[in-house]
Simulated assay, not measured.
Amino acid sequence: MKKAIFVFNTLTYTQRGREALRRRGIRTQIIRTPAQLREGSCGYSLLVLNRVDESIEILKAMNIPVQGVYPADIE
């Protein structure tokens, strides 16, 4: 995947994820979670614009729980 939507349970985890990835040069944006992915989420997600596989590993290593990762074309 070139771009992906990372869904989190809380806005705090979304913001922590954005900061952790930004520090490693990974481009992200906080977006409203698409309606079909909103169940159980905080309503905000992280759009990861590059290095998706590496982003997953970074967040796991930092104990930032991700509810799900979806292709960005779902928007």
Rank of each mutant, 00 (worst) to 15 (best):
residue 67 Q to Y: 09
residue 49 L to K: 11
residue 41 S to E: 01
residue 73 D to N: 10
residue 59 L to K: 07
residue 28 T to D: 12
residue 33 T to K: 02
residue 65 P to I: 03
residue 59 L to N: 00
residue 70 Y to E: 00
residue 48 V to Y: 07
residue 33 T to D: 07
residue 48 V to S: 10
residue 63 N to T: 00
residue 34 P to V: 07
residue 50 N to K: 07
residue 28 T to P: 08
residue 35 A to E: 14
residue 66 V to M: 08
residue 42 C to H: 02
residue 2 K to G: 05
residue 16 R to A: 12
residue 39 E to T: 06
residue 57 E to H: 07
residue 6 F to P: 05
residue 75 E to C: 06
residue 9 N to R: 15
residue 58 I to R: 02
residue 65 P to E: 01
residue 51 R to N: 03
residue 75 E to F: 13
residue 47 L to W: 02
residue 32 R to F: 13
residue 51 R to D: 13
residue 71 P to H: 13
residue 70 Y to F: 13
residue 38 R to V: 06
residue 17 G to Y: 07
residue 60 K to I: 09
residue 20 A to L: 11
residue 72 A to W: 10
residue 39 E to P: 06
residue 46 L to W: 03
residue 58 I to M: 08
residue 15 Q to G: 06
residue 2 K to V: 10
residue 20 A to P: 09
residue 12 T to Q: 13
residue 66 V to S: 01
residue 14 T to S: 14
residue 70 Y to Q: 00
residue 26 I to P: 09
residue 30 I to F: 02
residue 10 T to F: 05
residue 40 G to T: 04
residue 69 V to K: 15
residue 25 G to F: 13
residue 58 I to K: 01
residue 43 G to K: 12
residue 5 I to E: 07
residue 15 Q to I: 14
residue 72 A to F: 14
residue 72 A to Y: 00
residue 8 F to Q: 02
residue 52 V to K: 08
residue 58 I to D: 04
residue 23 R to S: 04
residue 53 D to T: 03
residue 72 A to H: 11
residue 63 N to C: 14
residue 26 I to C: 12
residue 64 I to V: 06
residue 50 N to D: 14
residue 64 I to N: 00
residue 18 R to N: 13
residue 75 E to N: 14
residue 49 L to C: 06
residue 56 I to S: 06
residue 5 I to F: 01
residue 68 G to Q: 09
residue 71 P to Y: 01
residue 5 I to G: 05
residue 19 E to Q: 15
residue 42 C to P: 05
residue 8 F to M: 00
residue 37 L to E: 06
residue 4 A to K: 04
residue 13 Y to E: 14
residue 56 I to K: 10
residue 51 R to Q: 08
residue 7 V to S: 14
residue 8 F to A: 03
residue 29 Q to C: 05
residue 39 E to C: 11
residue 54 E to R: 13
residue 69 V to P: 03
residue 46 L to F: 09
residue 65 P to G: 01
residue 41 S to G: 12
residue 56 I to W: 03
residue 6 F to H: 04
residue 62 M to N: 12
residue 66 V to F: 03
residue 44 Y to W: 07
residue 62 M to Y: 15
residue 5 I to Q: 11
residue 67 Q to L: 14
residue 18 R to G: 14
residue 2 K to E: 13
residue 44 Y to L: 14
residue 55 S to E: 07
residue 40 G to H: 06
residue 55 S to C: 09
residue 74 I to P: 02
residue 67 Q to K: 15
residue 27 R to G: 04
residue 15 Q to D: 10
residue 18 R to Q: 15
residue 25 G to R: 09
residue 24 R to Y: 11
